[in-house]
Design a protein around this nucleic acid. Sequence first.
DNA 1: CATGAATGAGCTTTCATTCAT
DNA 2: GATGAATGAAAGCTCATTCAT
Lengths: 202, 202, 202, 202
Amino acid sequence: MARPVSIRNEQILDAARRCFLEHGYVVSTAAIAKEAGVSEGSIFKRFGTKEKLFQESMGLPRLDVRALTEPLIGEGEIERNLEFLAIELLKFFREMIPRVLMTCSQPGLGPFDRFRNNPQSMPAVLLAGLRDYFAAETRLGRLRDIEPEVAARMLFAAVHNFAFFEYLGIAAREGEDASTFAKSVVDHLWHGLKPGSRELES
Amino acid sequence: MARPVSIRNEQILDAARRCFLEHGYVVSTAAIAKEAGVSEGSIFKRFGTKEKLFQESMGLPRLDVRALTEPLIGEGEIERNLEFLAIELLKFFREMIPRVLMTCSQPGLGPFDRFRNNPQSMPAVLLAGLRDYFAAETRLGRLRDIEPEVAARMLFAAVHNFAFFEYLGIAAREGEDASTFAKSVVDHLWHGLKPGSRELES
Amino acid sequence: MARPVSIRNEQILDAARRCFLEHGYVVSTAAIAKEAGVSEGSIFKRFGTKEKLFQESMGLPRLDVRALTEPLIGEGEIERNLEFLAIELLKFFREMIPRVLMTCSQPGLGPFDRFRNNPQSMPAVLLAGLRDYFAAETRLGRLRDIEPEVAARMLFAAVHNFAFFEYLGIAAREGEDASTFAKSVVDHLWHGLKPGSRELES
Amino acid sequence: MARPVSIRNEQILDAARRCFLEHGYVVSTAAIAKEAGVSEGSIFKRFGTKEKLFQESMGLPRLDVRALTEPLIGEGEIERNLEFLAIELLKFFREMIPRVLMTCSQPGLGPFDRFRNNPQSMPAVLLAGLRDYFAAETRLGRLRDIEPEVAARMLFAAVHNFAFFEYLGIAAREGEDASTFAKSVVDHLWHGLKPGSRELES
DNA sequence: CATGAATGAGCTTTCATTCAT
DNA sequence: GATGAATGAAAGCTCATTCAT
């Protein structure tokens, strides 16, 4: 009986996300409304305030890391598994990093409250998932007796940094693509830097 | 003959830095003036616009990485050297990261223009310095025949990530301190993850 | 469907005109908003900048002088016709002069650009209209063989000066009203100053 | 014994006049100081406020019209005398008009208070001087029995209008110079517009 | 439900004026 | 006397939010 909704929330959130990422929090709600093709009134009917709109549009995606790692435990070559995980992580980071960086600009709105000492926060959960994978493989003897937290962190950090530099346009290495990077990182992580360590393999 | 200058630029820049980092770019110039203990007029006399003030106050510190690495080449244990470098990097990142993140919130003012494809940008120079150190040690045979770019990036990434998580308050590991972290990272990077690689040492 | 417009542009322009004429360009937009009974925001929504508002509110009225002169050609007594034109011109100048003077205060916004060497500008068109009337009457032999530009200019100038003095409150002659002034001017212009020229009539 | 004054008031007033005439009252005191080559402080030491500076720098020049007219009474041809007076008036108006127009923009500062109903004001005095000349010549029978106020006003108005249009850049007539204009005006004023009035001369 | 006109608080910026030297 | 650094009040303008339709 009532008039049906004709504007989808996603339509507004997508536009808001584009605007915020391009211009920062200071972009005007009028600009967002125009980008979304709706009236300013509609935005406020739905989201109440600009802050709420910002938070919702900058909401972090989730990655079910356990769904990725569990099938790998004890299966295949570890190096291949790690490369696979690196690539998957990278896809995720490419989406996440711009949003995290943008929200960092608004302390109080930002991820600070959500992240601070919160083991349920997305990065903490993600890291825990990786750590559990390394722990499982260690228990199976497929890895040296390492600290799984540290190994997980190093893989995570390498990929995070790659995505971060990519986003900022920092030219770390000429024409480096993601898969080459993943292979190199895993190779170095696997064999270590110590001289002689690789040669002993044969 | 005229009234002498009684307000140092640093006094304003420090206040601006504190305000921007605490509240984001949206903090008002009035608040900055109050924090600095000067009039708004004085701020604009010195810096012209809020944008300029933001850029100057968020200006990135430089780290002379070669001054750190050069004395290390061929000297002492590599692992100790890497731990030392990690700690120094961390000190630097703790200062730099908040500024980079904050400026990322204002595309157009931000580091984007300064970073994009610019091999003279601070992160690129820093990374190059580390790479050269790894290359030098490799040439001396003190490292396995690795890709120095990759090794440098992995160290850089690990420290960067540590500082990043620290800033965001992400609880990666209970009560982990910097020096412990550095030791662990270097240990894993040195020996690698491959089973058996450490035991062969003895 | 949206809220209907409830503020007419004229409402703002009239208020702006009153304020500018009373206090000069330096009057604040806040004062204009108050005078108009609207918010400052509404003024800027409509006119963009104070400059634009000034220009629009000080826009010069037009006088269709040909519509006035054409019915007069060859009809009635010339002296009466000229008195009629003087009175009409005066009405127009009373509205126009304050605006021209006010805009002269803002070189760059003022009438300078619109007037300079522009034969389509209001004063030029007005003068041309008068000149054509004098030329037409001269062709009909109802005027001495004069230069119509000069005659037109003299009538125009006399009325312009009357309005100018009136606006500035310069007491040129005790208690002189417009119609008396018009009669006197036309009389002197018609008969000239030369002695004996009038007496010959009878 | 005391330090001698090293800045002349004229230096400041000239600069102020140039600035006000070019940019209007809104020009900043800083700009005036720069133009004058002195410090802002010095301006305020001398003139107290911007308003006072404006008024002093826009002060109207005086013309001793009686000194011009009295030698002419009863001497030479009237037409030549009137042309001479027109040219002298024009020189004066060229200096005066920009200042009057500029001050009109600041009601309250402007000439309003000085002009309003003030028979001692410069324009009133000027006009009275001209009127007395016409009256004197009329008494001598060298003019038709006219109203001297009106004749004076017509001459004054014609020259005023010429200077006014010149200042605004209004193209009244192609390539008209001052002396031609003066001759034409006096000729028309002298002989009048009535047909036949000239021919009777011979 | 959707609109966009209207608002007013608050922003950045300017600038006349003061003051320490 | 002369300077120009410093001020702070107020300006022009923006924009998140409300509201009448």
